[in-house]
Structure formats: C-alpha cells, structure tokens
C-alpha cells in the first residue's frame, strides 16, 4: 500500500509540475506582449519598457518560471494590475464563496444521485426506473447556465422565494445561504443526472454478483442487502465519477458565479480577463487546474479506503 501511495503521490506532484509549465507557457510564451496588452496600442515605448521592467519580463523565461513557481509555493502570486493588491489577497477574499458553492454542490449532487440511482436500480424495469433514466437523459443535455436562468425565472422572478443573484456577504449568514440556494441547485441538478446513471448501472452490476445472493440466502432484507452489501461494492465507479464531477463542478462555479453575479473566483477570473490582468488570470487558472488534479488524486486515495484488495497489492 505504501508503494501504491508513493507512486500516486509522485505522479500527483509530477502532474502539478507539468500543469504549471503548461499554464506558464500558455500565458508567457505565446506571442503577445503583456505590457502592450495592459497599456493598449497607444502607449509610448518608454512606458512599455518601464512596465516590462516592472513585470520582470526582461529576465529569461526559465528564470521567470522558477520565480513564479517559487513565489506561488509561498502563496505569493504577484500583484494584480487592475486591483493594485496582491493576487493572494484577492483570492483569499473570494475563495470561501467558491468553496462553499462547490462543496454544497457536490454534497447535493451525491445525495440526489445516490437516492435516484439506487432507487432506480432497486425498481429495475419498473416505472420509477424509467422515470429516473428519462429525467437524467434530459438533465445531461441541459446547460447549467440555462437551468440557472430557468430557476431564476421561476423562483426569483415569479415566486420571489430567492434572490435572482448577488451576494450580501457573510455578515448576513442567513441571506448569504439563501442566495447560494439557486446556484447550488443549478450546479447539482445537472451533475446528479450524470451520477445517477452511473450509480444505477453500478448498483445493477453489483446486484448480479454471487455475494449478493449469499447475503439474501442468509435471510437479510432487500433493504439491508442493498445498503450494506450492494452499495459499498458499487462505490468504486461512483467515486471515480464523483472525482471527475468535482472537477467539473469547480469549473462549473466559474459559469454559475457569472450567472448569479456572485463575487467568487469565477467572477474574478472574468473581471481579470476584461482588465487584461494577466498575473491574476495566470494564478487563477493554475489554481483551478490544481484543484482538478487534486480531486483526481483524492479519488485514488479513497479507492484504498474502500477496497481492501488494493491495500494488499504490493
């Protein structure tokens, strides 16, 4: 098991390293002059030179890369051009919102998907099964931002139960949570459509296994067999998809924050793009890619917790 963990950790670190190279290269090697982008076409040559110097653009690329990574590791992502404050400060302010949104989204996704998927599998071939499959087929095709708009039309414009967007700040915890309800639902509904299908087919697959028959032959009720014997065994493929979905959810927050005007990292990335604030965009892209990679790494760790067969593998 130690070997498995060590291997996974090494590959995790290597992937992060490679991702940082890709991000840095995309933002720095591609043709284009950041100083020109920032100052605009009518900038004087002197001003451009001064800004290049200030941005450290005159140093060789490799030096700049290691400076960037070195600083990033200590939490220093440079200074945002447009906000005039350290990028890390900007991120720190907005991170809690994005994290709350992503976590509540994944929790709701998993709860909904397990309930629907297990329910469908337990009623295999009956009306409930078909209903879940039909809804999830549609759900997979619905863009999250459009679903958000439909939710806004119904629950904010017509019924006025929830605000259509905006965020009052954590100082008003109740209002803050209220304003996160629609975004969370919009994120989770689409993802749970995918996960419910995976859950259903995984549960059906496990229900055909001999050990499930053994459990039934030992006189346990369907419900007990389902939750104690079938579901744990069905979890491995489910966890894989949940890991991938967490990544999708985190990037999904970029879209959803823009639909609901929530001041999180997703909004920040767009403000930075329109402000040509490259250090901020670079830091945020790196952060999002790192979250995606980390989610997949965590999935590999969870496998070990679920499946004892992996533990004993040399």
């Amino acid at each position: 098991m130690t070997y498995y963990l060590a291997r996974r950790m090494l590959s995790f670190a290597l992937t992060l390293f490679a991702v940082s190279i890709v991000v840095f290269a995309a933002m720095n090697v591609l043709p284009g002059d950041p100083a020109l982008t920032i100052l605009g076409l009518d900038a004087t040559e002197d001003a451009l030179a001064a800004l290049r110097e200030q941005l450290g653009l005159n140093a060789p690329l490799v030096t700049r890369y290691f400076l960037w990574v070195g600083h990033a590791l200590t939490g220093d992502f440079g200074v945002s051009h447009s906000f005039g404050v350290p990028v890390s400060e900007l991120i720190g302010e907005r991170l809690p919102l994005t994290v709350s949104l992503a976590l509540s989204g994944i929790v709701l996704t998993v709860v909904l998907a397990l309930a629907l998927g297990v329910g469908a599998a337990a009623n295999h071939g009956k009306a409930g099964d078909w209903g879940v499959m039909f809804l999830s087929q549609i759900g997979i095709a619905i863009p999250a931002f459009w679903l958000s708009m439909l939710l806004v039309i119904l629950f904010a414009v017509k019924l006025r139960w929830f605000p259509p967007g905006g965020f009052p700040g954590w100082g008003e915890p109740l209002d803050a949570m209220r304003s996160l309800v629609l975004p969370t639902v919009a994120l989770a509904l689409v993802q749970s459509a995918v996960l419910a299908r995976v859950t259903r087919s995984s549960v059906l697959e496990v229900m055909r296994q001999d050990y499930v028959r053994t459990a039934r032959a030992t006189g346990f009720s369907h419900r007990r067999v389902l939750w104690l014997h079938v579901l744990p065994n069905a979890l491995v493929p489910i966890v894989t998809i949940v890991g991938m979905q967490f990544a999708a959810l985190v990037t999904g927050t970029i879209v959803i924050e823009n639909v609901f005007y929530l001041p999180g990292l997703g909004r920040l990335i767009f403000q930075s793009i329109s402000n040509r604030d490259l250090p901020t965009v670079q830091a945020l892209v790196m952060l999002f890619a790192a979250i995606v990679v980390t989610a997949n790494f965590v999935v590999d760790l969870v496998y070990v917790l679920i499946d004892p067969r992996l533990k004993s593998r040399a």
């Binding site: 296994q209 001999d210 050990y211 028959r213 053994t214 459990a215 039934r216 032959a217 030992t218 006189g219 346990f220 009720s221 014997h229 744990p232 065994n233 679920i306 499946d307 004892p308 067969r309």
Partner: peptide, 22 residues
C-alpha cells in the same frame, strides 16, 4: 426471510465470488 438461514440455508458453486470482497 424469516426462514432463510434459520430453517433452510444454501451454499453456492463459486466460493471465489460468493463472499463480499469488502
């Protein structure tokens, strides 16, 4: 369910597959 295991019990062909691996 009340009879299984207590009155009538059964063992199956594939011992490899008949035990919950987890």
């Amino acid at each position: 369910q009340a009879l299984r295991a207590r009155k009538v019990a059964m063992i199956f062909q594939e011992p490899m597959a008949a035990l919950n691996p987890l």
